[in-house]
Design a protein around this nucleic acid. Structure first.
Lengths: 158, 158
DNA sequence: GGTAGTTATTTGACAGCCTCAAGCATTTGG
DNA sequence: CCAAATGCTTGAGGCTGTCAAATAACTACC
């Protein structure tokens, strides 16, 4: 019954559409650049998540990667084979194996960080004002994300 | 040499960080919902890209999926096995096989469209003004994307 | 202190995605 | 007609991901 039947998408829906498209292209491009470093997306992401100063238990990494622990075994295997990472049994609990980045892993990690934190051309091409506004809005969105995550952990009352 | 050494990220870099985080979470959530429909992300994306009224050659689909043609064979196989899609040899050129959505494919496709065009909670939770601003800014970013893509096709002069 | 239960990681089976190289059928152009 | 180009498929191989079962180590309780 509205007058403009063709563009009846809500702002949020339209934003989602653009968001998806930008994300898709960005994923392709960074994927290609990562491949040049001999890394898959998951491997790169794992490398990024590892704290250079603090060994991370594999289960913790699995959580941050949103995937099964058994999956991390394989990823860690490949990273370890290439000498980017080492498994260290935790002193206090010999069940848990924490991942440490090796020096050569650090070097590659820096490249990955550089590469993946680079904004895509489409965003870099925006005006300063747009870039700032985008950052602020997305920051608020991420805050909602965290708020939702916390209330989830606290147990939703209904 | 700047005073605040800790937050020296440019707006675009910060935006990119938030963008990545939102995209990651969204991918997880839609992935889970798609799994309930028995679809992988690629299958769903393919289903979405197929025009209900216009059979699409597999090579064209490969292009839109940013992947190798041989990959589309497998994806089409799985969709066809489930009766969501049919291969039709093109009348004019019997080499090309165009994909058509079946009625049951159409039903699932509508669900997928609904599901994937839904903005994530983090964006839905933004104020109206933020949603509008976000849409407008991302629209401009997407325009840059298209502009870059076209100049690329035309053959870059530099 | 031994035993049962829990937890962290690994393994194996299985499926999907993805790429490359090779192969087949068909079309196009000389 | 024959050669090159085109569209799809196949096969090999690697990565991501899941689940279920196995192993090792820790915890708690009697």
């Amino acid at each position: 019954m509205t007058v403009r039947a063709k563009t009846r998408l809500s702002p949020a829906h339209e934003a989602q559409k653009f968001f998806f498209e930008l994300g898709m292209v960005q994923r392709m491009k960074t994927g290609a650049k990562l491949a040049e470093l001999g890394l898959s997306f998951s491997q790169a992401h794992a490398l990024r998540l590892l704290d250079p100063d603090e060994p991370m238990p594999m289960s913790a990494l699995a959580e941050r990667l949103f995937c099964d622990a058994s999956n991390v075994t394989g990823i860690a295997d490949r990273l370890e084979t290439r000498g980017l990472v080492r498994r260290e049994s935790l002193a206090g609990d010999r069940r848990v194996k924490a991942l440490t980045i090796t020096p050569s892993g650090m070097k590659l990690r820096r490249q990955v960080m550089e590469l993946m934190s680079q904004p895509p051309d489409a965003i870099a091409a925006l005006s300063d004002a747009d870039q700032r506004a985008l950052r602020d809005i997305l920051a608020r969105a991420v805050e909602h994300l965290r708020a939702a995550g916390e209330s989830e952990q606290a147990g939703s009352p209904g």
